[in-house]
Write a protein that binds this DNA or RNA. Sequence first.
DNA 1: TCTTTAATGGTCAGTGCGACTATAAAGAGT
DNA 2: ACTCTTTATAGTCGCACTGACCATTAAAGA
Lengths: 277, 277
Amino acid sequence: MDGYDMHAFEPFAVTVDLAVFTVRAGVLQVLLVERGQEPYAGQWALPGGFVLPRESAETAARRELAEETGLSDVSGLHLEQLRTYSEPDRDPRMRVVSVAFAALLPDAPEPTGGGDAASARWLPCEGLGPLAFDHDRIVADAHERIGAKLEYTCLATAFCPPEFTLGELQQVYETVWGTVLDRPNFRRKVLTTPGFVEQVPGGARLTGGRGKPAALYRAGGATTAHPPLLRPAAPAGGAGRAPDPPAPAAGTATGSSARPGSGSPTAADPSREGRSA
Amino acid sequence: MDGYDMHAFEPFAVTVDLAVFTVRAGVLQVLLVERGQEPYAGQWALPGGFVLPRESAETAARRELAEETGLSDVSGLHLEQLRTYSEPDRDPRMRVVSVAFAALLPDAPEPTGGGDAASARWLPCEGLGPLAFDHDRIVADAHERIGAKLEYTCLATAFCPPEFTLGELQQVYETVWGTVLDRPNFRRKVLTTPGFVEQVPGGARLTGGRGKPAALYRAGGATTAHPPLLRPAAPAGGAGRAPDPPAPAAGTATGSSARPGSGSPTAADPSREGRSA
DNA sequence: TCTTTAATGGTCAGTGCGACTATAAAGAGT
DNA sequence: ACTCTTTATAGTCGCACTGACCATTAAAGA
């Protein structure tokens, strides 16, 4: 950053783009908005916007996240800078440099429509048509980054509500990685990693599931997993076995989507049924 | 990135900053330039400069890297986007958003002075005084990122010349991590990781070192290490045992610094002495 | 020649993990 | 009420990897 007075410099527009993910009904989903004007009118794009004169990219990203999701408190949500996209022609109108962020949401408080965007929707990450600008690549990069961070951090809890079962936590891994994990082994790994999760004093979840009620856990204090929880090496040909998403039955859905109420996920939900000793 | 026509937007200056690292004489060093003008005149800063109107940040970074190091061919060097720094007041003169990159060089072709900067120098990463702007933080972030990537990638070879010994490779790990590793165990791990390194057909290095001549290796085709080469967990209190850098003796220096000639490190150096069956 | 240094080869026990079996506790169907 | 299905949880067994060692080889230096 030397040589200030030696070159003329071109001004750039600086924006943020948000890749907001959630796991819903066993499918990884991204928050997208439908573009109203050219270019790419009618196509899906990542939410985002300009960085204002007196804010950092992180501040702008958190502001946009709040606007776009309609959540009142986004301070606790995981928001992480991904990388900056600066190809000269990525926006046909002008020179735009965009700082991309990845954000993780636990429950999906059904779109919003709060901010700039008229229509915002959660769409499955897999097989979505071409997005506006270079947003396909941003989504792919963000997906890959999150998958990698699940291995050596405790980030997966950011996809879960304040209290969750180990089955829900496992489904986060399986959904992001697109693999199936052995349940007892996953359980052992998570429980023996100090500070990954901690059991909530006296609770077990009853009604939602079909089987034995599962114990509830909270995120522990640890941020990194040592040693890491490695994703199973792809055997050889093609992708590993993908877990089938639970059947999209209405009403009492399977597993994680059975959670009632999508309001503020701040306090423990008292409508969660029976709690044994 | 929606809502273009709804806001006025402020133009930003966009720059790149380069954290260029090398391992020299058992010490991790960064390439720094001395600032000539205010602000921070006389202080050390990272090399970098403006992104030109028709180039991406990556292109600008590679251009600056070539200018600053004076190397003719920087195409093979490892250059990786770190993150973008955009705090509103990080430059007192104007709003500057900077995309930071980390680059790794094998041998250190003693500074340069080629590009913009009058005086460029390698300085040890540890205990350098306050740098200009937020460059301390960039260096710290880059160091941490590189240390982490050594664990699960084969990146360490980017610090080594085209042909190297396992001792040199190990010193890269020890220097970046600030720990001591067990030599036989390190050797076993590297050699059993498929594609990490491959032995050069019939060579062993003779003169430089004091002990038994070491076999020469090249970087293999692999980019990731599965399972990773985990950095030893810090025992409890404070940092792990730091390796003492070899005594800074002149002339025939110890170990890795014994390599002759600092010119273009493209082809295998024929001045490398004796080569047994 | 003897010592020092570093590379290389090998052993051995503990840990972690994958694969697998077994049991417990709920709902659904008959 | 009983069985079947489903899910959570407990436990076992063997292999692979790792960390801590020890031994040998081959050079340089005293």
